[in-house]
């Protein structure tokens, strides 16, 4: 029990529960099955991105190009498949998008390894390269007619149910992809040497190198994997929206990072859990969703997320302030 009380995820779950009950009391529409399915669907794309961000943050880096990678993979995949009039399975689209994402992620990894500069600034540059390339050389028009496989995928649901109103609701199938990704990332971080390497790199890079981790290889995995996940997330986004808009996704980076930080991941590395990140994403999605349901104008959204981020990191900082005199904490 004491172990439970000491955990960040526990507090997060408590806050989430209280919030859900409070909103449910204020507006019963919040707790309907339809809205819960909707929340799950909304948290899928953000959650997929967040899993990638979690890995990067845990390793002590920061990647803000993931949204640009997602938009790039999603748009290029859709345009390519349309160009060849592809009629086959959606999994080909996913394969293509994740390969494009992987390639862009590896571009990040190479840049970071060559430049040896803060990852924030490197990925700031690569993000504008990806986005600029996409919009300047590939296209700016929205693809409204997606390949048949992607449309079919977006219609696929689980736990289908027909309401009294005649409306059919169900859990979007893409949520299964999210669950798979959660299990995969949790497995890698917890049970593999690679995962330990990621924590070690974030905790103390020099110590990690001395105990024999090949840091370069770990970094290539991290940024490549983030790219791959972002590609998948981008395609899920296109399927959900039923169009491929090259202007989408970019601009959401900071709320994803905020969600992961909210979930207890340390931005200086070495700390972070999948459960925390998933809860953090859900909290942000609930806040955004509830503002609408509670009738609060949407321009309050930024204030709410900004306030939540600051409060959360401030509380974390105050709780661990035993190290006040360690100069490293001023970095």
């Amino acid at each position: 029990m004491r172990k439970l009380l000491g955990q960040h995820e526990f507090y997060l779950a408590m806050i989430l529960t209280v919030l859900v009950i409070a909103i449910g009391l204020a507006n019963p529409a919040f707790l309907t099955r339809a809205n819960l399915f909707d929340l799950c669907k909304s948290s899928t794309v953000m959650g997929l991105f967040a899993l990638g961000v979690l890995i990067v943050l845990t390793s002590g880096g920061i990647d803000i190009s993931f949204a640009a990678i997602g938009a790039f993979s999603m748009y290029v995949t859709s345009r390519l498949l349309l160009a060849v009039d592809f009629q086959g399975s959606v999994w080909v689209a996913f394969l293509l998008a994740s390969l494009i994402g992987l390639a862009l992620g590896l571009f990040n990894a190479v840049s970071i390894n060559v430049l040896r500069l803060p990852t924030l600034i490197v990925t700031l540059g690569s993000a504008s390269v990806f986005r600029g390339f996409l919009l300047a050389f590939i296209g700016t028009s929205i693809v409204n007619r997606l390949p048949a496989g992607m449309i079919a995928f977006s219609r696929r649901t689980l736990f289908e149910q027909t309401l009294a109103t005649g409306e059919t609701i169900g859990l979007s199938f893409s949520f299964v992809l999210y669950l798979l990704a959660i299990v995969a990332v949790a497995f890698v971080l917890r049970y593999t040497l690679l995962g330990r390497g990621i924590y070690a790199l974030g905790g103390n890079a020099e110590a990690a190198e001395r105990v024999g981790f090949n840091l370069r290889r770990v970094q290539f995995f991290i940024y490549g994997f983030v790219g791959l996940l972002s590609g998948v997330a981008g395609l899920v986004h296109a399927c959900t929206m039923r169009n491929a808009n090259p202007f989408d996704l970019v601009g959401t980076e900071l709320s994803v990072i905020a969600a992961v930080v909210l979930g207890g991941a340390s931005i200086t590395g070495g700390r972070g859990t999948v459960l925390g990140a998933v809860l953090g994403v859900f909290l942000i999605v609930v806040i955004n969703n509830s503002l609408i349901l509670l009738g609060i104008p949407s321009y309050w959204q930024k204030v709410a997320t900004g306030g939540v981020i600051i409060a959360s990191v401030a509380i974390t900082a105050i709780r661990k302030d035993g190290v006040r005199h360690a100069a490293a904490s001023w970095r």
Binding site: I62, L120, L254, S255, I257, A258, V261, I267, T268, Y299, W300, Q301, K302, V303, A304, T305, G306, G307, I309, I310, V313, A314, A317, I318, D321, R324, S329, W330, R331
Partner: peptide, 18 residues
């Protein structure tokens, strides 16, 4: 409060714009 500058200003960026 010893918050990492990136995080603190990321939060205040959202807050001020908001």
């Amino acid at each position: 409060l010893h918050i990492t500058p990136i995080l603190a200003t990321l939060g205040t960026m959202q807050l001020f714009t908001g």
